[in-house]
Design a protein around this nucleic acid. Structure first.
Lengths: 183, 183
DNA sequence: ACGGCGAACTTGTCAATGGAAAGATAGAGA
DNA sequence: TCTCTATCTTTCCATTGACAAGTTCGCCGT
């Protein structure tokens, strides 16, 4: 766990964090592996040892993202509104992960770690979304719930929703998600 | 309108089309300006004259995309289900445009052409989404309608929705969008 | 203690890229 | 015909992703 010397000690984590930061600043492709290496204070080829290539790094980020999402959903419980708000919260708190996760062409979506984490999040998601209306076709309902939460989160992150400044995304999302429940 | 010689005749359109094709094949950043130039049969610096830089090209694509979306929505009319399906149809028929449009960091979102086209699409969108339930708070309703259509389209394009192969996205979207109307 | 084994990291290199600068071409109007 | 100007080419440079080969050092068995 040293921070200086030939062996960094925790390069993998450091580079992942640097990637998250860089993506947050400059978007999904406004950065370079070499820049991350510079931020971490290592040589330009060091990251390759841990991730192979750029897609490898993004694959690790996607897997981490699905894991974080699954944790968030698990904590929120099986209620639709709670799960939907948790989904939006995850997206706004981890925009870099969220952005990568749903851009499968950027990484290796068939990676084992990614697939496992995604399945775990998917199961929790379906469970939460299905509580919208137990009577109605649950597949359709699950898709509607996921769509509205994902759509709101995506539009929010894209800055497409005209909102007064300093609006809390969760406060904005709550009535929108509720529209699926009651009219 | 020549296809050979020093002056291409329609380079701007040709490069835009090549970009759409390349994005469709390799994703939002799996291509290069030089590759587009090669496909168009011109020198690697020719596109720069029309677009300035890569962000300029994507700015043009985004503007075109918002214009296409506005046209699609206008044809669909003010009914929510029709507008929502039109939105999904636009996304699936023009995935490259759609992908760029909602990734503002890729282009100059404050460009005049972009802003005008986006505002036009936004107005039509709000109008359509508001017909979900005229009585309820129309702002919230509009956001819910937009969210569910946008979310479904995004998840569909990301391949996140497990579906039998050869499913028509519109057939899949219809019952999902309807979930917002009736329970 | 100590010796070597392998993971972690570095240095060096190459083709490809984005972008800028400066020159060449040709179509269109005076 | 002559000139003007948008369009396109050629040349050049710093940066990048990826690979190959060499270096360092933590760790494990003895």
């Amino acid at each position: 766990m040293r921070t200086i010397g030939y062996h960094h000690g925790d390069l993998r984590r450091t580079v992942l964090d640097a990637a998250v930061e860089a993506i947050g600043e400059s978007g999904l492709d406004g950065w370079s592996l070499r820049e991350l290496a510079r931020r971490a204070g290592v040589s330009h080829a060091a990251p390759a040892h841990h991730f192979g290539d750029k897609a490898g790094l993004l694959t690790a980020l996607a897997a981490e993202g699905f894991d974080l999402l699954a944790d968030t959903l698990r904590e929120a419980g099986p209620d639709f509104l709670a799960a939907g708000l948790a989904y939006v919260r995850f997206a706004t708190e981890h925009p870099a992960h969220f952005g990568v996760m749903f851009q499968p062409k950027l990484y290796r979506a068939d990676d084992d770690a990614v697939r496992q984490a995604r399945d775990r999040a998917g199961a929790l998601l379906a469970q939460g979304a299905r509580t919208v209306a137990a009577s109605a076709g649950s597949e359709i309902t699950a898709r509607a719930g996921w769509s509205i939460a994902h759509g709101f989160a995506s539009l929010w992150l894209a800055g497409a929703l005209p909102m007064p400044p300093n609006t809390d995304p969760l406060d904005a999302a709550r009535p929108v998600l509720r529209r699926l429940l009651d009219h």
